[in-house]
């Protein structure tokens, strides 16, 4: 589903955020991306969503080499990816329902069909009763779940999340990760960038670790804890 082939990314300032990164994530996999702050996790995510372009190497998403995607093709590419952000990126002048419906409106889905899908997505994240509220009145965890509902409403084959639990307490984080697990179970490929090593170990999924822009094969070390699973 996602293939990086000797990818490097150098930002305009000259800083090389990713160096010679290669990996393959199969369709249906759920993979965590870890690494210290500044290791290049967000940069890698941005390359997948075509928010940035590679400096060298190739990124292939869903069988498509992203080097061949022109500017005009970017919207179509992004519709195949559900993107989830640490800061939710919800629109505060629109209701929960309208926020979640946005990807469908953008894709030109008819009104009644959109309505059905939005309610299905809100149901999955357990927020069906809040569809008329505005995001500001929701808790952090609820806002994040609205963001997830928006990401999955279009049934994309790929979900990417950049530190989706960064601002949440441990219990909420587990809940959110479980949610991702559920989507993964129905066949969605999931890539999550996270600092939360304990949580990742608990979930027992594959992980990729970045260290100063390079993939490292060092094992995960918990924050002073020992692994006992």
């Amino acid at each position: 589903m996602i293939q990086f082939d000797r990818v490097s990314k150098r930002y305009p300032g000259g800083y090389e955020a990713l160096s010679d990164v290669s990996f393959l994530i199969e369709a249906g996999e759920m993979v965590f991306l870890t690494g210290h702050s500044g290791a290049g996790k967000s940069t890698l995510m941005k390359l997948v969503a075509l928010l940035e372009r590679t400096s060298r190497g190739q990124v292939i998403v869903d069988g498509r080499n992203l080097a061949g995607v022109k500017r005009s093709g970017i919207p179509q590419h992004r519709r195949k990816i559900g993107i989830i952000f640490q800061d939710h990126k919800l629109l505060h002048d629109r209701t929960v329902f309208d926020n979640v419906a946005l990807p469908l409106v953008v894709a030109g889905i008819g009104h009644s069909e959109a309505r059905r899908r939005v309610r299905a997505a809100l149901d999955k994240v357990g927020l069906l009763d809040k569809e008329r509220l505005f995001p500001v009145v929701l808790s952090g965890g609820e806002q994040q779940r609205v963001g997830i509902a928006r990401a999955v409403v279009n049934k994309p084959p790929l979900l990417i999340a950049d530190e989706p639990t960064g601002n949440l307490d441990p219990a909420l984080s587990v809940e959110i990760m479980k949610l991702f697990g559920l989507f993964n179970q129905v066949g969605v490929t999931v890539l999550i960038a996270s600092h939360d090593h304990r949580l990742i170990r608990r979930l027992g999924k594959r992980h990729l670790m970045l260290d100063h822009g390079r993939l490292s094969d060092r094992p995960l070390h918990g924050d002073g804890e020992t692994f006992d699973g």
Binding site: P75, R79, V106
Partner: peptide, 8 residues
């Protein structure tokens, strides 16, 4: 946000 979710 609209660009992020694939708005043309």
């Amino acid at each position: 946000v609209t660009k992020l979710i694939g708005g043309s």
